[in-house]
Design a protein around this nucleic acid. Structure first.
Lengths: 142, 142
DNA sequence: TATTGTTATACTCTATAACTATA
DNA sequence: TATAGTTATAGAGTATAACAATA
């Protein structure tokens, strides 16, 4: 048995990248099966809470003009809705419709590879992983 | 203190999604700063080892015709190279050039949010996280 | 017959630039 | 002046269909 040296941040990069890629591939496949691009899936997931166009574009790390087209297509499909903001007359608020919310839930539920992976973990592993994921999520949110 | 009930797979989905999103956003921003799209960055990272066009397309979860255009643009930029396969004359092998390999390393190194997050973890947390990420990565690889 | 890679086509994603309305 | 959203435009990503070469 080697000396019990704690791993460095660099030691974690590669395993983290693999896990992330596995998750993202699953999401892309499931979203595609519902006719959603990855961007649309990300937008729909972000729209659990209503957001302004500006905030949504920031969240998607894309230009505002891109968000316009993206949301316009999703609105034409009945997944989201734009309404004028009451506070700032320049601004619009985007909400997921009931159809949109339902689709978001279904996509999340149909990510079988991810679900299977998490269920394959032992209760002990899950208990150890949860606080670490919460920590990571907090630290990674810019 | 509440009863020590181990978390279910569902309890982990949301924290996992947040962590993944943080990682992926960081990657997209850094890749963009080098003029690479997310797809190109994914391809370049996948090309640590030479792959056939077919295998690469499978890896990127996209159609083969898409891989053709993607790799053609990267080849024009000198990041990758296509050579005929010696074993199967229908097939081509894609390799990252030295420029391509260097760029992949730089992108990985410049993901400062991810690095900072991993470095903010305590040695104990890192030691606990490493085997869990390896498990997850293995389970998520389809 | 099946598979690998490509081309042609059409649509979506994305950034830049220019514009209107509002702050 | 600065900001929110849109439109126009151009280049990149993506799937479908059809094709040539090879297995």
């Amino acid at each position: 048995m080697p000396a019990n040296v704690p791993p460095t941040a660099d030691d974690l990069i590669e395993p983290l990248a693999r896990a992330v890629r596995g998750y993202y591939d699953d999401l892309a496949v499931v979203a595609l099966s519902h006719g959603l691009s990855s961007s649309q899936a990300r937008a729909l997931i972000a729209l659990r809470e209503p957001l302004s166009m500006r905030t949504l574009a920031d969240h998607l790390v894309c230009d505002a003009s891109n968000a316009t087209g993206l949301i316009a297509r999703m609105e034409a499909r009945g997944l989201v809705q734009r309404t004028p903001s009451l506070e700032d007359r320049r601004s619009k608020v985007v909400c997921a419709t009931s159809d949109g919310k339902e689709l978001a839930l279904r996509i999340r539920a149909e990510m079988r590879t991810v679900h299977a992976a998490l269920e394959a973990l032992t209760p002990h592993e899950r208990a150890a992983l949860l606080p670490l994921l919460n920590r990571l999520g907090q630290l990674l949110a810019h």
